[in-house]
Design a binder for these strands. Structure first.
Length: 721
DNA sequence: GCGACATTGTTTTTT
DNA sequence: ACAATGTCGC
């Protein structure tokens, strides 16, 4: 067997990892060091050299995108179809397992998946149903709590008797939520994993089957695994099946949602004798960029230790721009994009990275006026749109009338006279007899316990659903979807919405029919699910892109988090201000601050050719002007790599504040906020704020070298520049 | 059931 | 500031 296609494209460290002896292996793979390549080549290696069938390989990722990429690269390298191979996300693979073993997992055959929005809505219902005050038990927080517990492998029953009153109440809600899911045959995202884990633990037949089947398990982005996912992996491995894990502790940015970098350490403990490799040669960035990234990340204490290097040239210095405010910052960035394009590059090679989504707005506005095409990542995705979810809710209700959340969603959409009062009676009845809303509706309408009007409306709704269900039974999927949209009145309902909005929704519904038409039912993957169920699961597990892939050459706007795994020739990281990035919520705890620093590290290492940084001296946030000092991360980068960009001219209109100090400042000292000033010892800086009056008047000045300071005007002898 | 006003919370995101 | 809810009156 010729292994040269597998080994030739690899460097020494990669080759060692790929050809490691069978057994647990951990690869610490720095940014841009060929992590996916190692994973893919490792699969090829074990298949070709150790003669493991591709069907004996289980490869797990976090996102569908990563799974798809892995699949296609394995196919290209192995020259076989990857159809039989188990490559997928934790959730996708868990789902697949639960569909096969639904009986052992104690699920109804047609169980459906709740996405986070569905989960949130159901939780609100549950909390209301328990007659609890939403203000005291915020559904968002409860949702957070439940998911966090599930991610730790904990059920409500484990929590009922612990903690204080609050804790117990949370556990009570958790328990009621479990029951609601149970009754309606619903499974949320975390539940997919937890159910699977419990299934594997309680059914020796099942786990033995899979341990015999999978001879190799690989996992990507290992630093992002939470406790549940790690337990899931260990369960599959037992003490026989080797686990090949690839990750980078320096890119762990999801601690806030339960990811445990410590799993990297646990790996070495739980798999004694595990092999350990480091990939430190970077193929992406210039030396300047890597030196900067290394310099920054060295400020973190809890690290495995790793230092990226490259054979690449030194490259451009890192640019730093101190903007007056967020508008000035956006204008500067727009200029940079225009300049980049003028030099013969593509716009799509530029990424603007920010800490929080709200920051995208200014950039959008300025890009719009400057005529720069752009694309914002994140936001509502296709299958998350209201009109899409409404249609899917009808489909779900047809498949399973006990699906209470779907019932709630569409019972009065379009409005058919079933209001809050009727629903309250329905819910109470359903609760009393522990039946679904669907059954409750049927019973109450028959028992004449409702007003004639309400009973009629309910009967009408139910017969509509039954009728559409019958009509649709034998139709191909896309016709089913089209028929549902038509017959339920959704189409005309949205058509009535005024303006562009209604049309967009209609277009989206048409797009949904297309998506259904293009949906491949794969018996290999979907087992004996119905095509509709498979499509519904697909909608929940792969919510689709935020915006359809744009053919136009667009500048890319996204959060630092969503930039992970991507690369761009030019990366512009904006809003580098203390309190914004690192975010103020992270400043109290060292661990969280270090995570912010890793986020910055991720941002910098996305760049191939150049990094540009910027911050604003004043920024309008939550409606008020804020003054943030420059981010500490700027100071943590090696100073010699940074070139300050001087502002061109003073573009920003001066800010006036209607307080006496400002007037005095302006009149007596010739100062105003935003004014550049010079101080005898501190050098040059910018006035950020003022307070007090008369001889107590003070100004806050942000000095270039000395940082920001409060000075008493009378003594400071500031010189206006 | 819908439009007008009030209240509320604004880090990051995938599945 | 602002968007996204919730409440109230018709």
């Amino acid at each position: 067997m010729d292994v040269s296609p597998i080994l030739d494209p690899l460097n020494e460290a990669q080759r060692q990892a790929v050809t490691a002896a069978p057994g647990a292996t951990l690869v610490l793979a720095g940014a841009g060091s060929g992590k996916t390549r190692v994973l893919v080549h490792r699969i090829a290696w074990v298949c070709h050299v150790e003669h493991v069938s591709p069907y004996g390989v289980l490869a797990v990722t976090f996102t569908n995108k990563a799974a798809a990429e892995m699949r296609s690269r394995v196919e290209a390298l192995l020259d076989v179809s990857s159809a039989g191979m188990w490559v997928g996300t934790f959730h996708g693979l868990s789902h697949r397992l639960l569909r096969v073993h639904w009986r052992d997992a104690e699920l109804p055959e047609t169980f459906q998946i709740l996405d986070s929005e569905d989960q949130y809505r159901l939780l609100r219902r549950v909390i209301k149903g328990m007659e609890l005050d939403e203000a005291k038990w915020p559904p968002k927080q409860v949702q957070w709590y439940i998911n966090a517990r599930k991610d730790e492998g904990l059920r409500a029953q484990h929590l009922m008797n612990n903690g204080d009153h609050t804790e117990r109440q949370y556990a009570q809600i958790y328990s009621a939520y479990e029951e609601a899911c149970e009754r309606a045959g619903l499974v949320d995202f975390a539940e997919l994993l937890l159910r699977t884990l419990e299934l594997l633990r309680k059914c020796p037949d099942v786990i033995n089957h899979y341990r015999n089947r999978f001879h190799y398990i690989l996992v990507d982005e290992f630093q992002d695994t939470n406790a549940l996912q790690y337990a899931w992996l260990r369960e599959f491995c037992g003490d026989q099946v080797p686990l090949f894990a690839v990750g980078d502790d320096d890119q762990s940015i999801y601690g806030w949602r339960g990811a445990r970098v410590e799993n990297i350490n646990h790996f070495m403990r739980d798999f004694p004798g595990a092999q350990f490799y480091r990939l430190e040669q970077n193929y992406r960035s210039t030396r300047t960029i890597l030196t900067a990234a290394n310099g920054l990340i060295e400020h973190n204490s809890a690290r495995m230790g790793k230092s990226l290097w490259t054979r690449d040239a030194e490259g451009e210095p890192i640019l730093l721009y101190a903007a007056y405010n967020e508008q000035d910052e956006a204008r500067f960035v727009a200029d940079k994009v225009i300049d980049w394009v003028r030099r013969g590059h593509r716009r799509s090679e530029v990424a603007v990275l920010y800490r929080s989504n709200a920051q995208s707005r200014v950039f959008e506005e300025v890009f719009m006026t400057q005529g720069i095409p752009y694309r914002v990542y994140g936001g509502l995705r296709f299958f998350e749109r209201a009109e899409i979810k409404d249609t899917l809710a009808y489909l779900r209700l047809i498949a399973n009338p006990a699906d209470d959340p779907s019932f709630e969603r569409v019972v009065n959409l379009p409005t058919r006279g079933i209001g809050e009062r009727t629903m309250a009676i329905l819910r109470a009845h359903a609760k009393d007899y522990a039946i679904s809303l669907w059954e409750a509706a049927a019973q109450l309408a028959a028992a004449k316990e409702l007003t004639t009007r309400a009973a009629k409306a309910l009967t009408h709704f139910q017969s509509l659903v039954v009728q559409v269900a019958r009509e649709v039974e034998e139709l191909p999927l896309h016709d089913q979807v089209a028929r549902v949209i038509e017959r339920t009145g959704l189409k005309s309902h949205y058509g009535r919405e005024p303006g562009e909005k209604g049309q967009t929704r209609i277009d989206n519904l048409a797009e949904l029919v297309n998506a259904a038409r293009g949906f491949n039912f794969n018996p290999e993957l979907h087992g004996d699910m119905s095509c509709t169920d498979a499509f519904l699961a697909h909608a929940a597990l792969e919510a689709g892109e935020g915006q359809g892939a744009s053919w136009e050459d667009c500048a890319q706007l996204m959060t630092l988090h969503s930039a992970k795994g991507l690369e761009f020739p030019l990366v512009i990281i904006v809003g580098l201000e203390q309190g914004l990035f690192p975010h103020k919520m992270s400043l109290q705890e060292l661990g969280r601050l270090e995570e912010e620093r890793r986020l910055c590290y991720v941002g910098i290492t996305r760049a191939r050719e150049q990094v540009v940084l910027s911050y604003a001296e004043t920024r309008r946030q939550y409606g008020a002007d804020g003054y943030n000092p420059p981010s500490q991360f700027i100071g943590e980068l090696p100073a010699e790599l940074i070139t300050q960009v001087r502002p061109r001219v003073q573009v920003r209109p001066p800010l006036y504040r209607g307080v006496d100090t400002c007037k005095r400042m302006t009149v007596d000292f010739g100062l105003k906020i935003g004014q550049r000033v010079a101080h005898a010892t501190f050098g040059e800086g910018v006035v950020l704020d003022c307070e007090g009056a008369g001889s107590h008047a003070r100004v806050q000045v942000n000095f270039e070298s000395a940082g920001s300071k409060w000075l008493v005007l009378e003594y400071a002898k500031l010189e206006a520049l």
